[in-house]
Design a protein around this nucleic acid. Structure first.
Lengths: 107, 107
DNA sequence: CCTTCGTATCGACGCGCGTCAATGTATTAG
DNA sequence: CTAATACATTGACGCGCGTCGATACGAAGG
């Protein structure tokens, strides 16, 4: 099951970059706090996310885009409001990440 | 066990910064590959880590410092060689991180 | 002592990221 | 149509990070 002791192959480059990208999204305090707010309710309006993190509307919008792009969060436009929720299947991952004792999902 | 639906408090700022720092260390492909090489053997000499990741000796040394500072890896100087291994108690965490399905440690 | 070898540190460079004011784009109200 | 609201996008700024060549440091050998 395992290769030779000292000829061990490193994590493949492609996979390393994938993983690094995921962790990069989680490496900002503001994004983690936004994620925690979204995870705390079934749905959250973007208008309720600006004040708690003490950043401009533009900055919050940018962070939310990154969370969506990373597949951690889903956005749904209803009228003029944008509603965010944890992406389906990613709830366990998000919960454990925020708990500091994640059990990351298999992709 | 849970606070009110829409008055949910965000992850505290201190905790968010702690978590972000941990994830930041994991957000570089070269560091992830180094970590995988170290985790693949009980002990690895720094001299065996430069070639696989295709970076200069200075760069590898820098990344190893960050991994040590983050408490993920331990360094032991023996003669002129530096030996690295996964930090005690962090093996589960490291293994799951590299598997893409981490179970982060508490702290 | 001097030399060689393995690593760490320093200084500098370029690039990417977090941030915000300003502007753009829909959607709703009047 | 006009105005106001909610949000995204743009452009610019500063700072931090990954990288490397050069240098410094310590251990071993002659």
């Amino acid at each position: 099951m395992e290769s030779g002791c000292c000829t061990a192959e490193a994590l493949p480059q492609d996979r390393a970059e994938e993983l690094a990208d995921t962790f990069k999204v989680l490496s900002d305090p503001v994004r983690l706090r936004l994620l925690s707010l979204i995870a705390a309710s079934p749905e959250v309006c973007a208008c309720d996310l600006t004040d708690p993190v003490e950043r401009s509307q533009a900055t919050v919008s940018h962070h939310l885009s990154l969370l969506v792009r990373a597949g951690l969060v889903v956005r749904e436009q209803r009228g003029k409001w944008a509603w965010f929720s944890v992406a389906p299947g990613r709830e366990d991952f998000v919960r454990s990440v925020l708990a500091g004792q994640p059990a990351l999902s298999g992709r």
